[in-house]
Simulated scan of single mutants.
Amino acid sequence: MELVLERISKKVGPQLWLREMNLTLQSGAVTVLLGATQAGKTSLMRIMAGLDVPTSGRVLVGGKDVTGVPVRERNVAMVYQQFINYPSLTVAQNIASPLKLQGYKNIDARVKELAERLHIDMFLERLPAELSGGQQQRVALARALAKNAPLMLLDEPLVNLDYKLREELREELTQLFATSDSTVVYATTEPGEALLLGGYTAVLHEGELLQYGPTAEVFHRPNSLKVARAFSDPPMNLLAVQAMGTGLRLPGDVYLEIGTQVPQAGALTLGIRASALRLQSRPGDVAVQGVVELAEISGSDTFVHVKSAWGELVAQITGVHYVALGETVTLHLDPAQVYLFGADEALLRAPDRAHAYAGGR
């Protein structure tokens, strides 16, 4: 099923919620809508589903104009932040409800299969109120998957779950989507979630579509500073620099040689992903000393906030490291890993793929 948004916009009163955009979803693939709160993700999904009508533009499904066709006349499955289940039906009956409407045969076997895949098969005879929030969200996901709709919309479905459960469900959903024929649209504020789900990513900001393409390509080659900011967690380190031949003049009067002619003269912005900064040196690195202002451990990474001559820097160090506040550390950087943005904030230079995943240690 091909879904095309053609010059779509949405205005509510004097406010422009969605700026005019064109978007063609890849059939049978996952498209992630990535952006901060109020970026326009939910508004866009409601138009895709038929819950709202665009102020201008058309929605095409399989080449047919369905603009204004209500959701009840479309074959769409949706899962929201707040799980929605039928409270008077058991888990098994909730999952089976769309199957019965479709006249599906072997309903019990399909319900059991989906329940097992989402690890809720032991709760099939319980009512939703007897389950935890995470278990109830799994029921809602199972019911959406059971519908087997050509278009499945998931609006931040894991945002209200605890960290461990989110991690488990992300992995499960990635596997489920890979074996599904549905076109999946998944809204999130988290860059890491977009990378894990893969597929394609549309980056939104204040109702504007900034960039759309294969997720890895958008991550490695953000077309602007806005996209780089949206698709970096922790935020990309951004420094004001001056172009000088084949190098850059950094804050603190430091010269950084990047090996190729800088494509634009004058004031530019240098971007350094936190994962590109390391505590250990490698041949060809440049180094900068700084004082640790904050060190936090998150999962299997340590985030070190450093005040340096270059400015405030955040380094994402692989592994668990205990770094004292006020300690002087030296951060190392391969110049091949830097991004460069022009005066108009457009991308001028990005690392090649060989350097893109060289994580910090």
Rank of each mutant, 00 (worst) to 15 (best):
E6C: 09
A274P: 01
N94I: 13
V184Q: 06
A36F: 02
G319C: 05
G50W: 12
Q261L: 10
V304D: 06
P191F: 08
G40R: 03
Y255V: 07
L3F: 01
V262I: 11
Y322N: 13
V227L: 14
R229K: 15
V306N: 07
E156D: 10
K64R: 15
N94D: 13
V139C: 14
H332K: 10
N237H: 11
I258Y: 07
E116V: 05
A142P: 01
V288H: 11
D233W: 09
E167P: 00
V323Y: 08
A142F: 01
D233T: 09
V288K: 12
N22M: 06
D233N: 14
A129W: 12
S300W: 07
A194M: 06
Q261C: 03
P335R: 06
V159T: 10
H119C: 02
Q26R: 12
A228V: 05
G199P: 04
I317C: 04
L333T: 05
K64D: 15
S224C: 12
L44A: 12
I258A: 07
A346E: 06
G133S: 14
G50Y: 13
M21Y: 00
P14W: 12
Q289T: 10
G299Q: 06
A295F: 00
V254Q: 12
R273C: 05
A142C: 08
S308Y: 03
E156Q: 11
H332A: 06
A230K: 08
L248N: 07
Y163R: 11
E345I: 01
E171V: 15
T201H: 07
P283R: 13
R126H: 14
Y163F: 07
Q242P: 00
L325H: 12
E171C: 09
L210V: 01
S182R: 11
L195S: 11
A240W: 01
L210D: 00
A350M: 10
Y163L: 10
F231K: 09
T24S: 15
L99D: 05
P263K: 09
E296K: 11
D181C: 03
R229P: 02
I107F: 13
V320K: 14
P98C: 13
V71M: 02
L89H: 09
G40C: 09
S43N: 09
G207I: 02
L238C: 07
Q261N: 08
V185F: 08
A29V: 00
A129Y: 13
S9P: 01
R249V: 11
I84R: 03
A350P: 03
G342N: 04
G28E: 03
E113Y: 08
T174R: 15
G63A: 14
G319F: 03
V286W: 14
D334H: 12
E73K: 03
I47S: 12
A295T: 09
I258W: 06
V262L: 08
L204N: 05
V12I: 15
W17F: 15
V314Q: 08
R221T: 12
T31F: 05
R349Q: 12
A178R: 13
K105A: 15
E116R: 09
K100W: 13
Q26P: 05
S132C: 14
